Computed example of a mutant assay.
Amino acid sequence: MDYQDFDAIDFILDDFFQEWVLHPSPTTDRFWQGWIGQHPEKEPTIRKALIAIQSLDFQGIDSEKFDRNKVLQNIRAAIKTDELKDELDIAWESGETQEDDEVGETIMYSLPSRRFQFKTRYFMMAAASVFLLILLGVWQLVMTTSSVEYATEFGETKTIILPDNSTVVLNANSRIQYYDDGKGQGNRELDLSGEAFFSVVHNKTDQKFIVRSNGVAVEVLGTEFNVNNRRGKTQVVLKSGKILLNVPTNPQSSVTEELAMEPGDLVEVSGQDKQITKRTVNPDKYASWTRNVLVFDNVPLQEVFEMIQDTYGYNITILDEEIGDKMFEAEISTSDLDLILKIVSKSFNLNIKKQGSELVVSKK
């Protein structure tokens, strides 16, 4: 991330900077001390951002009714609006212009691992202005933003109509949490664990629709796409429209890579280092489960059994490793597990036995 062109508001919004201010570690200390040493002209800007973030004191608030992470999310959204951003700029400028000869007192302000001297009066006035503007601009959003959660059990799918009339088909063993301020303002956002197919409606106010899954953000206005978040991998397949992926490239910073997708693109993000692969596919195959059709396009049996485990909740034991390497190609028009197991068993001459919550697979 190139921080050289950042202003105070940019630093306030930056996750890696927030982490250093609120939860300093040797890694963040080393980075920011080195960066400030290389860019001493940015010290005034750094001070402004530090004061604003550290002014947000949430102590004494009922933790059951107050979500600090949600507050910070809404701060980001609020500051990004042109009106509030202009007000914050004015607050800083008015605070800085009030320095006079009578203000001679200096104090030492403790940073996470570094101390700066600065004039008491005008910086504290600027801090107070920012603090009040942020709270006034965000508090209403925080208190009026509600979330609703939908979930499915093993072997169950569910179709959900969201308040904006977008449709979500939720696959088995999956969960979404949708955030809505009830006023059609801000972004439409939801968190996904598992798999879902989205048909997003474009609305008159051009609200973005953002799906967050395992650190990956899928940003759209109106489109159809499938997101699968299983086993440490996030897979996105675009059927129609356009979407923008924001993928974190460094787990210790807020650096992200933006990736535009066209219809037919499949992007998979895997591992802690968020490795990205991209290829062109038939998107209908990846959303076929919404029609109770399972399409296996020359995939290893190991992946078939992983799908069964994720969807139906069975633990699977394969007694011969060679079985998992066999390639399977089929289109099965059913969601009935017994029929799926029967087809796999006959195709490869296998014994598949149910033992409670476990499936044991062996050669005949």
Rank of each mutant, 00 (worst) to 15 (best):
S146L: 07
S146H: 13
S270K: 12
Q275M: 10
T145Y: 04
T317E: 02
G95Y: 11
T311P: 02
E258P: 13
H202A: 10
S254P: 13
L141N: 14
L238S: 06
A330V: 01
R291F: 13
D325M: 10
A49C: 09
P26T: 05
V293N: 05
D325C: 07
E322P: 04
E331T: 15
I90E: 15
I332Y: 09
D273E: 15
M307T: 11
L244N: 11
Q117G: 09
V295T: 14
L294W: 14
R231K: 12
G356I: 02
N250G: 03
P163M: 08
E43Y: 02
Q302M: 13
N226E: 11
V211H: 07
I9P: 00
A287G: 10
S333R: 15
L141T: 04
I90N: 12
T249Y: 04
K278N: 05
Q235A: 04
G222I: 06
T290I: 15
L170P: 10
L141F: 09
T277H: 03
K233N: 13
T334F: 11
K363P: 00
T159Q: 10
D325Q: 11
A330M: 13
R175P: 05
N203K: 09
E41D: 14
G95W: 06
K233S: 12
T234H: 02
I318D: 00
W20V: 01
P263T: 12
I352T: 00
A49K: 03
N173T: 09
A127G: 15
I46R: 03
M307S: 03
P163T: 09
I276P: 01
S213Y: 08
V236Y: 08
